[in-house]
Simulated assay, not measured.
Amino acid sequence: MTARARLTWNGAAALRGTRASAVRGLRLAAEHVLEVSRRRVPIEEATLERSGVASVDEEALTAGVSYDTKYAVRQHEELDYQHDAGRTAKYLEGPVTEEAGTVEAIIAAQVRRALRG
């Protein structure tokens, strides 16, 4: 007995779905880093914390987290400033480094879902 199967490969659709999943993974990963970093942002009136945003460049498949106040960079880099408990300088650099494995897992999970179809 001979079994036959016919497979039609739609590579363009598969790539579109994978790319869309990668974008979704990047967005979720950036939001994760933003949330972790918000817990460390020096806080006086919460202006710096509220200025944090996560963004994704879908064309370049890159994501970023940023804070937008006049003093965001200074607060991030000035290691001698005194902060409330749990708040610190390097409030973004630390989470980016520490959460790298989680970021990879978030993106990989989204891409795997697309490949399972």
Results as ranks from 00 to 15, higher is better:
Gly17Glu: 06
Ala89Gly: 00
Ala13Tyr: 03
Ala85Cys: 13
Val36Ile: 05
Arg116Gln: 07
Ala72His: 11
Pro42Thr: 07
Leu92Trp: 12
Ala54Gly: 03
Arg113His: 09
Thr18Cys: 15
Asn10His: 06
Ala3Arg: 09
Arg4Phe: 06
His83Lys: 08
Glu104Gly: 01
Gly25Ile: 05
Val33Met: 02
Glu45Ile: 04
Ala54Glu: 00
Ala13Trp: 06
Met1Asp: 14
His32Asp: 14
Val33Lys: 02
Lys90Tyr: 10
Ala46Gly: 12
Gln110Thr: 09
Ala3Asp: 15
Arg112Thr: 04
Gly117Arg: 05
Ala105Asn: 11
Thr97Leu: 04
Gln82Arg: 10
Ala89Phe: 10
Ala20Leu: 06
Thr69Lys: 01
Ala30Asn: 08
Ala22His: 03
Ala5Asp: 08
Leu28Met: 07
Arg116Phe: 01
Tyr81Phe: 05
Leu115Arg: 00
Thr18Trp: 00
Ala22Tyr: 06
Ala105Pro: 04
Val111Lys: 05
Gly101Asp: 15
Glu35Ser: 09
Val73Gly: 13
Ile107Leu: 15
Pro42Ile: 03
Thr47Asp: 15
Asp80Ser: 10
Val103Phe: 11
Ser66Pro: 00
Val73Ile: 15
Arg16Ile: 10
Ala114Lys: 02
Thr88His: 11
Ala3Asn: 10
Ala105Cys: 01
Arg4Leu: 11
Arg113Thr: 07
Ala14His: 01
Ala5Ser: 04
Tyr71Gln: 13
Arg116Asn: 03
Glu78Arg: 09
Ser37Trp: 05
Leu26Tyr: 13
Glu31Val: 02
Pro95Asp: 08
Gly11Leu: 14
Asn10Glu: 14
Asp68Ala: 09
His83Pro: 09
Ala54Phe: 04
Gln75His: 12
Tyr67Ile: 07
Arg24Leu: 06
Pro95Thr: 04
Thr2Met: 11
Ala29Lys: 03
Ser51Pro: 08
Ile43Val: 14
Val41Gln: 02
Glu44Met: 03
Pro95Tyr: 09
Glu58Gly: 02
Arg113Glu: 12
Ala3Tyr: 05
Arg87Gly: 01
Ala108Met: 00
Ala85Ser: 15
Val33Cys: 06
Met1Thr: 13
Val111Met: 10
Val111Pro: 05
Tyr91Trp: 11
Glu31Cys: 01
Thr2Asn: 15
Arg19Ile: 04
Gly101Gln: 13
Thr62Leu: 13
Arg16Tyr: 03
Ser21Thr: 06
Gly94Val: 09
Arg50Met: 07
Leu28Gln: 09
Trp9Leu: 14
Leu48Trp: 07
Pro95Leu: 08
Leu26Met: 11
Asp68Ile: 01
Arg6Trp: 00
Arg19Tyr: 03
Tyr81Cys: 02
Ala89Lys: 01
Arg38Pro: 01
Thr8Tyr: 10
Thr88Asp: 15
Val36Gln: 13
Trp9Lys: 06
Arg4Val: 13
Ala100Leu: 08
Arg50Phe: 05
Ser55Lys: 09
Ala20Val: 02
Glu104Met: 03
Glu93Arg: 12
Glu93Phe: 10
Asp68Trp: 07
Ala30Pro: 13
Met1Lys: 12
Thr8Leu: 12
Arg6Tyr: 07
His32Arg: 08
Glu44Val: 03
Ile43Asn: 10
Gly11Pro: 00
Pro95Cys: 05
Arg6Pro: 02
Leu26Gly: 10
